[in-house]
Amino acid sequence: MHNRFRKRYSYWLLTAPGLVVFLLVIMFPVIYSVSLSFTEWSGYGTPKFVGMKNYIDILSDSIFLHGLRNNLLIVFISVFGQIPLGFIFAYILHRRMVGGGRFFQTMIFLPITISSVVVALLWNQIFSASGLFTAFMRIITEDPRYVIGMFEQKNLAIVPILFVLLWMHTGTYMVIYLANLQKISPSIIEAAQIDGASEGQTLRRIILPSMFPVIATTAIFAISGSLKAFDLIYAMTGGGPAHFSEVIAIYMYVNTFKYYKYGFGSAASIIIILLSVGLILILQFFTRRIERRNG
């Protein structure tokens, strides 16, 4: 009896401080946002209840839908670009396929420490219409009005951003995988290779299965990070030109802070959360199935 009380008391003592801060700072505003999302409010007076109108308006707005498409592309590049590439880097380093592994490892992770403002600034100095790359191409093509057409096409304007995101975040995944690869006991791999397993077979039969839970977890980070992506894109293009590189977080930001539509903006941020939860649930469904199959 006494022990159970002591355990409960300790539980709350250890859990409560973080939980209180977290609930106050994050969950309270989120609940506030949920209720605001059913209203129309410009910041003054009482919010006007409008039911599902904001959600319907958002989901039928072609700008939002294009933003959603771009977000899904970012999810795609994160899950099927950053994660595999991060794994490849980690694998290369782990199997010592290159000399100076430490050096490369440090360099690949370095972009994480650079703020997105710097990245955007540099990008602009190189690829913008008055940038270095453009100047170079103008000489080669002998066309003084050469510009990179991709930026002005609705379907492609997001592509450069995908590349930069790939560059910025691959390092994080690499570090995570590398660290976990080092936990796989080398003797298992050696044993397999003595038995005549090729490099590819070792990778497929031993390394990948044991890395699977880690990969599944990082995929959750990738999804949540992708759907709320804001800083870098806002600094690079601001979602432009003409909303071509829009993402939902920018859509939400512009409506809230530039157009003063608080209800509408809240609805957009709730949609971001719902989408992430949905995607993560789908991911977990598949992870469970694969894990079960792997036994």
Binding site: I26, F28, I220, F221, F230, I272, V277
Partner: peptide, 16 residues
């Protein structure tokens, strides 16, 4: 709940 917290952007809580 904490996992949900991973999904929240600063902009959506800043005013409240």
């Amino acid at each position: 709940l904490y996992t949900l917290g991973l999904l929240i952007t600063v902009h959506s809580v800043i005013v409240p």
